[in-house]
Design a protein around this nucleic acid. Structure first.
Lengths: 358, 358
DNA sequence: TTGAAAGCGCTAACAT
DNA sequence: ATGTTAGCGCTTTCAA
């Protein structure tokens, strides 16, 4: 009953060298193209590699070269489709460059972010693409990261060393609010997660700017962190003497809470209040009513950030540091803002009732 | 203008040893607790570590020990919230065990899966938690993985070496279909992604079993890979002489397509057809109508799989291999199946109309 | 309880 | 064009 395991031990470079009748350096050079090698020898080496099924040990290589052909990605979490889309886009670019990736989440906590980033650096990642954590302060200034290329996306961090790829948060918010104003709304309420978050703050600034430009009074709330908190905020807003007739919701997380809350509170959209969100939702278009949103180019954001990172890795153009690339957003007009009132459901409902009477 | 960078070189173990006036082995032993060390020396070592801000180099450690205190996670993608939830749950358990994680995606391609898993093994991960790719054959039997502990989740793979954590796919489908039958439906159509996918196949088998048990004719379609394909499948189903009065949609990906398609085709739910899906959707409860689904314990699935993996890593209990753990699912009854017809929107619509008449 | 030497698998630097 | 030597930073092994 004894299980015999003929576990052929993993071949190493010296095995290949022996079999090919060369020194290890020749094998190394064949593998890395780091110096010219005679065609005939090269062939022998490749044959030996194949025969032994040799795979270079990336750890030994990392240790010796103090680099690893890999980059690290840190995002707040995988839940938010915006983050996972960014992470995916970055991974794709990395694969194109033959780099491997190491993905981690910060849970929006700068301490965890530091721990994870540090671990990656200890593991010799050559660069880091980060969506900085919202809570606490990202500390990529620390000496641990002095020799690591870092690009942030979605949110910037202080420091002239870092490039950032952002979206037009403020402009997008302005467009959304203006659209609501065009619909005739004067009391527009703005609902947000936390005023500590860069993106949220920028969007709320856009909101305020647009309101003030039209001599309207801004009316904004932060702290919509849970569905309940959001519901309470909405109730508070709706119980004032001057009830809002429209809501601008500054990210998709809060939007999900808000939709739940509106549903529970029996507030109809867009009949009772009009609604526009920032960041698209997967099913926004088949929701009833379809949700009007400011769409961010999440995939592009990841792609551009990754390309920037590789540009820096390859050309060592650290000179361009501190730059910010800002990507455009666009308003996707659907129904929750009051446009396109086809109201499919209503006529049908009436039809159904009359049918049941017949 | 020259920027002086006083980049204090990273301290290594010998630096610590020198400062503490001991040999490197003592430092190593203090750090790893691999042998008793005099309390006083220990203190001196800790002081030196702190003073030099020493961090052990995990790469050197990996090279020497041929292990890395890390596990690998491979999921098909990050998009599907089911997968990202699993990945997150696994990461949590790993952190509790002080292990670091390496996450990667297979894009449902067994070749990519192999490449990524192989890379992880070369990087000395001690174990692998995998949702096996749907396309192609996962090849964890290969000698490369002979000394790696592997646990799969959501989908099993052949081989007595591997434990799997699965959900009650078939039973869940049976319950869903029976529920539709309880509503009086006789022509229930089943819509799925691919018959190559373990989970889908199991659910479709459940569907078939339930149908046959009640002497109903199964009517199932695969290939709902895009929204358009799904729409065409639905149209095909609905154009037959015996139009289905209900749909069972076997995963959340197809459900999203189906909802889009039903909306485009002006098919009302649950008036024209009733609908139940497998796997919950983020906004299923506020959708109009709210979607009835078979809910899977995705977080638990990840947690249990990870715990199984660590049990094997720690106790080396390879003896229990080949086991499958099956987790229960539950039917979350909302409205799309025909239950709970509160029809919030309708009375209001009537109210609104009558109001406008008054 | 502690230290010295050897070596994990690879490549940089210097030979030839 | 190729081989030799040394060493990346750590831990295993052996000796004290």
């Amino acid at each position: 009953m004894k299980e015999v395991r003929l576990l052929a031990k993993k071949a190493k470079m010296s095995d290949v060298a022996k079999l090919a009748g060369v020194g290890t350096m020749t094998v190394s050079r064949v593998l890395n193209g780091s110096a010219p090698v005679n065609e005939a020898t090269k062939t022998r080496v490749y044959q030996a590699i194949k025969k032994l099924n040799y795979q270079p040990n990336p750890i030994a290589r990392s240790l010796r070269q103090a680099k690893s052909n890999s980059i690290g990605i840190i995002v707040p979490n995988f839940y938010d489709p915006f983050f996972s889309t960014c992470a995916h886009a970055i991974s794709l670019v990395a694969k194109q460059h033959q780099y491997s990736v190491s993905v981690s989440t910060s849970d929006e906590d700068a301490n965890i972010e530091f721990t994870e980033a540090n671990l990656m650096v200890l593991n010799h990642v050559e660069g880091l693409a980060v969506i900085p954590a919202a809570i606490g302060k990202s500390c990529f200034d620390r000496p641990e990261f002095h020799s690591t290329h870092i690009v942030t996306l979605d949110r910037p961090i202080r420091g002239h060393r870092f490039n950032s790829v952002l979206v037009e948060n403020q402009q997008g918010a302005i467009e959304a609010v203006k659209h609501l104003i065009d619909h005739g709304h004067k009391r527009i309420c703005c609902l947000g997660l936390s005023d500590k978050l860069y993106t949220i703050r920028a969007r709320h600034e856009g909101y305020k700017k647009a309101m003030l430009q039209f001599n309207l009074t801004p009316d904004q709330y932060f702290g919509a962190v849970t569905e309940e908190a959001t519901r309470i905020l909405i109730q508070k807003a709706m119980s004032g003497r001057k009830k809002p007739t429209a809501f601008f919701v500054s990210n998709n997380f809060v939007m999900r809470h808000a939709l739940h809350a509106f549903s529970k509170l029996n507030i109809r959209i867009p009949d009772d209040v009009a609604l526009i969100g920032f960041d698209d939702l997967e099913m926004a278009d088949i929701f009833v009513p379809a949700i009007t949103v400011v769409r961010q180019p999440s995939h592009e954001l990841g792609r551009v950030a990754a390309e920037l990172l590789f540009a820096r890795l390859e050309h060592k153009e650290v000179s361009l540091s501190g730059q910010q690339i800002v990507m455009p957003v666009d308003l996707v007009i659907r129904q929750s803002c009051g446009c396109n009132r086809r109201d499919i459901a209503k006529p049908r409902a009436i039809h159904k009732n009359s049918a049941s009477f017949s």
